[in-house]
Design a binder for these strands. Sequence first.
DNA 1: CGTCTTTAGATCGGTTATGCGCTAATCGAG
DNA 2: CTCGATTAGCGCATAACCGATCTAAAGACG
Lengths: 218, 218
Amino acid sequence: MRYSLGVVYRDSSGRTLADYPRPSVAVDTAVLTVTPDGVLAVVLVRSGDPAGWRVPGTFLHPGERLADAVRRSLAQKAGITGLEPAQLHVFDAPERDDRGWVLSVAHLATVRYEELRLDAGIARLEDISAVGELRYDHSAIIEFAVAELRARYASAPDPAGLLPEPFTILELRRLHEAVAGEWLQRDTFRRAMLPGLVATGELQRGQRGKPAELFRRT
Amino acid sequence: MRYSLGVVYRDSSGRTLADYPRPSVAVDTAVLTVTPDGVLAVVLVRSGDPAGWRVPGTFLHPGERLADAVRRSLAQKAGITGLEPAQLHVFDAPERDDRGWVLSVAHLATVRYEELRLDAGIARLEDISAVGELRYDHSAIIEFAVAELRARYASAPDPAGLLPEPFTILELRRLHEAVAGEWLQRDTFRRAMLPGLVATGELQRGQRGKPAELFRRT
DNA sequence: CGTCTTTAGATCGGTTATGCGCTAATCGAG
DNA sequence: CTCGATTAGCGCATAACCGATCTAAAGACG
């Protein structure tokens, strides 16, 4: 940190930045995953002060990057590490948080279901289509996150890496259907995804029907 | 404003929000327009302290919405009103601003060339492809803004309303070419835009060639 | 006043994309 | 072991799309 190393910055009124009121800045993250039964779900944590559920979040610490604040909050509250959160939107309504003037930078993070380590007492997984109204703007955050994830999954095979490699095109399609929340045409999907896949040459055995080829993402 | 009306919020350490350091929050806006000669251009204003050029911005005032801060800064520095700014990204590198810990929320705003009232001494219009390196993250802000505007113009006719209605499809295509920065196929463009247009039944006269029908956006 | 140039808008033929169906390949049950 | 169920992957017919061409309608010019 090298704030005010030499001259302190003063504006046209001769005041420094510290003379102006500043908002608290929080990060709130919709952590999305797809469950083994093919449901797009979001991580909710128990909200302290007014009892209820919310998406995990924290206040930004001095000198901290937003993405690092997201990682810190998720490591603490949901035992998740190694994420690459993406910014979605800044919620800025002055009255949105009754604790004071708080801006919230909404984020999206994705995690494999198998890597989730949720403490059942303080966190749970909720089906995206069953989330009720949450406090603050947390319902809106989830909507932003789902829209962003769906946009990413529309044209590329599993961009978030939710599926362990190698996988069959059927497994990939089941995942994309869970994300999209709707049935996807078999051939159209195959043709759209093939350019982004590399065949391993291996076949999946032990399933019913003709063995499917195994692929990796390019 | 109703901060700390009754009970002051305290966290698990018994501290209030005010006990934690908070960042300054700024808004910076890439104001884009298309000049009469068909060039996509951005508004730059003179930077005070370290002399140079930057995109207009300001610090967020207490209780103010981000969009209102954008409007305030643009009304002051470029005489522009009636905008609907869109959030792009939060720039959060702790060292990005040597005046202190400053987060910047980048915005995009669009304005008709005829409505611009730039004070030549402090503001100028710069061709998007001729913008050099700017201080802070302002080059990145412009890149975000151009990408966002191009995405919006890819599928809908003049979503930002840069063209006065009614207009011909040729005028619309010239505008879209300026935004996209590349030549657009005549028939493909016409077919892509027609669903978003309504014919007025009027024809444009006084030009060479077969008179073109005049359209409005739906 | 007639011809040339310019531009709009419709039409047409070829290409690409889409969805259905067929066949191959495997598992499981009788 | 055989037959039926299931699933992968390819082929084919159709539909949608795209770009070039053609015609119409106006101004420019001699």
